[in-house]
Amino acid sequence: MSEVILQANNLVKTYTQRSGRFGFASTQIKALDDVSITLKAGTTLAVVGESGSGKSTLARCLLQLHPFDSGEVLFQGQDLARLSGEALRNIRKHLQMVFQDPFASLNPRMKVGEIVGEGLLIHGLGSAAEQKEKVLQMLERVGLEITDVQKYPHQFSGGQRQRIGIARALVLEPKVVVCDEPVSALDVSVQAQILLLLKALQQEMNLSYIFISHDLRVVRHIADEMVVMSAGKVVEQGKVVDIYNAPQQPYTQQLLNAIPGRKAA
């Protein structure tokens, strides 16, 4: 179980931002400043931090959706930054993403069946009949109806749309799924359902999750290990239980103390 599946070493990513009146000047913002993380197979690594801490940039760099300045990302020992074209596409089916906003991340003009099946089509996995069968199975697995394949995203609630997003990511049977704030736009009752679903699917399909979140209560429930980020740097990392029980860094302590309802509880 402790085999490393995804590893990032010394990632650096700098954004250039226009500044000053009328944007004539420019400033360099280090979104990732020497960030290293390790994800073990079958476990969940949470990345927590406040807005602007670089957690979403990290997610995108891990999946090679953003180029980074220096460092390396190793998936099962293979350096992703050196791959391109066909080789990178082949590996992408093992690396999938679930997005935050279930409204913006689904194409409103595609039917659910097309959305979920698109990955299979692109990667040419199986015959048309097999692809259809897989889509139906996946939809059922995430708690949707078989008849939903013919519907459009606007016909679903936020929680159901997030289930569609999860089905789209998992139909390719990936090894690593990056979840970027997957439950923060949802009501707490729906949030609990989605968290339980993600946990169950992890067991069944032996998935490894990178779970990006700003909600430390959610992280406590879903993650095994965690990385705390602030201003592009990793402030603290370790087992979730250890960090919650005895945070070492002042910034982590501050975050944990700010969890609403903690004082009262």
């Binding site: 009752s189 406590r220 509880a265």
Partner: peptide, 11 residues
């Protein structure tokens, strides 16, 4: 039921 859905910081 709603309270049972709320994750707690203690886990």
């Amino acid at each position: 039921a709603l309270l049972a859905c709320v994750p707690d910081a203690e886990g």
